[in-house]
Design a protein around this nucleic acid. Structure first.
Length: 357
DNA sequence: AACTCGGGGTC
DNA sequence: GACCCAGAGTT
């Protein structure tokens, strides 16, 4: 073992004794930390994938209130499920959640599996989430390596490896699992992520002055913590032009259900087509749809940014003479209560619009 | 290994 | 604007 590996070995071995006591003292009071019920921990971990804590809090509480048990989730109506997920994004998380719930009911007698390898087989659960559940709920010495952990480790060890490479994540996981404590496995898992969330933060300067690893962190000793972690280059977002119709017929608004696969799968949408159309072209399209006579009230330009696509939308607000057959015509109440309409479209339903509904 | 899949903070 | 977030599934 060379000098560099000895240093790494020492740093990793030190983590549990320093971070667990720090975590027990500084842990935030979060809704999903009130108990260690696998269903609760599982739900929170799914919601937290690529999603900030503050955004999740409200969704988590609402979701559990409506679906208190795995059986309730398994039996849930999909439209209702998606409505509860509306605005949270990555909607396949919700479908996979229910798929897994059904699997647990049918194949495991409703009992959440207690072993890392079994947990990993559930839809929507990858290595990170399986590790988080296994260590937190079943005290198994399994690491949960997320963006927080990779950032913390890359700084403590001053590693300039690209943390987006799977090999890097794999090695960090193995090294962590070599030093997992015999008890309090969940606290150790949480301590690494908590440090990343509230001290070794992702944006802005890390709060090294209050970090329990301050004296040991190699990046901090070298003043390089702001350069880490290293991530691969970004790819450009595809630009898509769309024309969106905000159609009213009396007090009803036209919506359509999206396809079962792909972007915003299974959610609702305002009628829309690809390409940017002029008002004249747009009115011609509407006559083909059978909503005539039409009266164009106003236009609006809106933009929506997804992870890999940007929609540049032209919206036409139109009063229609009849309800076209190929779509659903719903009232304002339904739009709020039962129709899961993504943010991209909800932008068009501004105050002016609702005053006239 | 590269893509797909949301939405909102933060700088 | 650009980046990032308690990632997973598909190709």
């Amino acid at each position: 073992m060379n000098e560099k590996e000895q240093s790494l070995d020492f740093l990793y071995k030190t983590l549990p004794e320093i971070l667990i006591p720090w975590y027990l003292k500084h842990a935030r009071d979060l809704p999903w930390r009130k108990d260690r019920v696998p269903y609760h921990v599982w739900l929170s971990e799914i919601m937290l994938q690529q999603t900030r804590v503050e955004a999740v809090k409200g969704y988590y509480t609402r979701f559990l209130k409506e679906f208190p048990t795995i059986a309730d989730l398994a039996e849930a109506d999909e439209d209702r499920l998606l409505k509860l997920w509306e605005g949270l994004g990555y909607y396949n998380r919700a479908r996979n959640l229910q798929k897994a719930a059904k699997k647990i009911i049918s194949e495991n007698n409703g009992v959440f599996p207690s072993e890392y390898s079994e947990i990993l087989t559930l839809p929507g659960i990858g290595e990170y989430t399986a590790g988080a559940i296994a260590s937190n709920c079943f005290d198994e010495p399994v690491a949960a390596v997320d963006g927080n952990v990779l950032r913390v480790i890359s700084r403590i060890t001053e590693s300039y490896e690209d943390i987006q490479k799977p090999a890097v994540k794999k090695q960090v996981k193995a090294r962590l699992e070599a030093v997992y404590p015999r008890t309090r496995c969940g606290d150790f898992t949480q301590s690494l992520m908590e440090l990343g969330a509230i001290v070794c933060v992702p944006s802005g300067a890390p709060k090294c002055g209050v970090c329990p690893m301050e004296d040991l962190c190699v990046a901090h000793r070298h003043g390089t913590e702001q350069k880490l972690p290293v991530k691969n280059t970004k790819k450009e977002r595809k630009q898509e032009e769309r024309t969106v119709f905000i159609l009213r017929c009396g007090t009803k608004i036209a919506v359509k259900k999206r396809k079962k696969e792909g972007l915003l799968a299974g959610l609702w949408e305002l009628p829309n087509i690809s390409e940017k159309k002029t008002a004249k072209e747009a009115m011609e399209i509407l006559s083909e749809w059978g909503v005539s006579p039409v009266s164009l009230k106003r236009e609006a330009i809106r933009k929506h940014v997804f992870s890999h696509i940007q929609w540049n939308m032209t919206g036409f607000y139109v009063e229609c003479g009849q309800e076209a057959p190929e779509m659903e015509w719903v009232c304002k109440n339904e739009l709020g209560a039962s129709i899961a309409l993504p943010t991209a479209f909800r932008q068009f339903l501004d105050e002016d619009f609702f005053q006239n509904v």
